[in-house]
Amino acid sequence: MSNDLQFSLDGVSVCFEKGETIMQAAQRAGIYLPHLCFHPDFSAHGSCRVCIVHLQGKTVAACTQPAESNQVVQSNTPELQKARLRLIQLLFAEGNHYCPTCETSGNCQLQALAYDLGMTHYHYDPFMPERQTDGSHPDLFIDRDRCIQCDLCGRASAEYDGKAIYTLSGRGQNTQLVFRSPSGLLGDTNAGADDRAAHICPVGCILPKTGNYQEPIGTRLYDHHPIHDIGNLRKEERGGSS
């Protein structure tokens, strides 16, 4: 009966349930589609565009595009991999990403996708934005230089923690992560270090203040395992996958 609920993804037949997106169906089928702003536990955002796929002549984001019967979807093509590489390079160029000093290096999804897509350099000139850090919280540190505006923290905070602390403000290249407190400081919110939002960041923007740099190089998530093999993991999610 559910036989007609399937589509083709890179030549493989993928089953889906009504209402699922291409990304959700692919994940259930165990097929990795590169992504950053998507997380299965939260509503889709569709902003990073890394999960773009070809769908019958159009390019769409797999995380927001509803799956439909008999769709023909292409993801793993040289053209799309190149496009994803460029998107990742744009993300690197627009922030201030200094991997050698970053606590998340080795466990960072942006970096892992860059490794996986064969990135050796930024390709675009760095934008060198001036962004504020926020160290007001006793347990958490915010380094906006590394923020990729994916709003995962915003969604985790609103949809899971029920706190709605994190959100995005501004416009265009000045879009930035902000916190819902009168002062605008994270320290003046009821954010907790155990909140889901505090652990959802795919890069090194939201960090615990203690316990960093403890894993030796060679033992971190993506030191030996490409992201397409092990998925978009966070440090504490070893073994799981998203």
Partner: peptide
């Protein structure tokens, strides 16, 4: 376009800036 990009998606938010830089170059 760089000035008016809403900033939501990567290719437009960062792409309009990169395009401006490349044009300069």
């Amino acid at each position: 376009f760089r000035h008016e990009s809403c900033g939501f998606c990567t290719p437009c938010r960062a792409g309009t800036v990169a395009l401006d830089q490349l044009l300069d170059q």
